[in-house]
């Protein structure tokens, strides 16, 4: 019925430290046909199962901040250990145009690294704005640079890049890059600010949402976006993050 609906066992091949509380788990295989922006449900038997966006798929990589009991357990995994995944699930980003602006707030940088890799491999022009509380919280900055992306940084305490919110970087990045599409992943406040800006700029936006994920396959309804958020962004009501998203596409004409 659904070939991606059962768990597959992967082994951790490499564990890479990204910052003081975040690591990337590089696994021993790829997921067939996985697209940037899609997610997997990661399971540790007897502990929990949670959604993670793919931060790469050659091989599979998930980037995990140690912020709760499950993410702590993931951070304890060592090379050779099993990790079970079902997926890829949901709808990912769709490349539109040749020049792309990516916005990652905090952990939101993770799925954008897979997107940037894919866009750069196709010879596109890619700019990335990354924001966090401080320099120590920024993620994957060197990876984006090494892919050949132009990178802008913002931190709330001013310890790296521009002081302030990530969205303050938008005008400068737009002038430099002249993007045809903007892509964003991060807290909901950042996404709505970005969507409002994109509308003013007349640009289509693709936003990656977070939801409370249980079934992950569009049956249980727990990841529905609030109706007010849908109205604000011009998405059809009843938007399911797992089935209609995680990436929602917003045309500048439909934003209200």
């Amino acid at each position: 019925m659904n070939p991606v609906g059962l768990f597959s066992a992967f082994r951790v091949q490499q564990k890479r430290t990204e910052n003081a509380y975040t690591c990337s788990l590089v696994l021993n295989d790829s997921l067939p046909d996985a697209l940037p922006g899609q997610f997997v449900m990661a399971w540790l038997p007897g502990i929990d199962e949670r959604p993670f966006s793919l931060s790469d798929n050659d091989p599979v990589r998930i980037t995990v901040a140690d912020v709760g009991s499950f993410s702590h357990a993931l951070n304890q995994l060592q090379p050779g250990d099993y990790l079970w995944l079902r997926g890829p699930l949901g709808r990912g980003f769709i490349s539109r145009g040749r020049s792309h602006l990516l916005l990652g707030g905090g952990y939101g940088a993770a799925p954008l690294s897979f997107l940037a890799k894919s866009l750069c491999a196709q010879g596109n022009q890619v700019g990335v704005c990354l924001g966090a509380r401080s320099r120590a919280d920024l993620l994957l900055v060197e990876e984006f640079s090494s892919l050949g992306c132009q990178v802008w940084l913002a931190t709330e305490d001013g310890s790296a890049g521009k002081q302030g919110l990530l969205t303050a970087l938008l005008p400068e990045a737009q002038n430099a890059l002249k993007p045809e599409t903007v892509y964003a992943c991060g807290p909901i406040g950042m996404l709505t600010t970005m969507a409002a800006w994109a509308r003013t700029a007349g640009l289509p936006a693709q936003l990656s949402f977070e939801g409370v994920m249980r079934c992950g396959v569009g049956l249980c309804g727990s990841c529905e976006l609030p109706e007010t958020t849908c109205q604000q962004l011009g998405l059809a009501p009843g938007f399911l993050v797992c089935h209609d998203g995680p990436v929602g596409e917003i045309s500048p004409n439909h934003f209200s």
């Binding site: 019925m1 659904n2 609906g5 449900m41 399971w43 079934c215 396959v217 049956l219 249980c220």
Partner: peptide, 22 residues
């Protein structure tokens, strides 16, 4: 609240769920 995850898996022949009457 219902049961903890995993609550749903799907395979070739169908779906198995135990959401737990959330």
């Amino acid at each position: 609240a219902g049961h903890p995850n995993p609550v749903t898996v799907a395979w070739d022949c169908g779906v198995l769920n135990a959401i737990g009457l959330t």
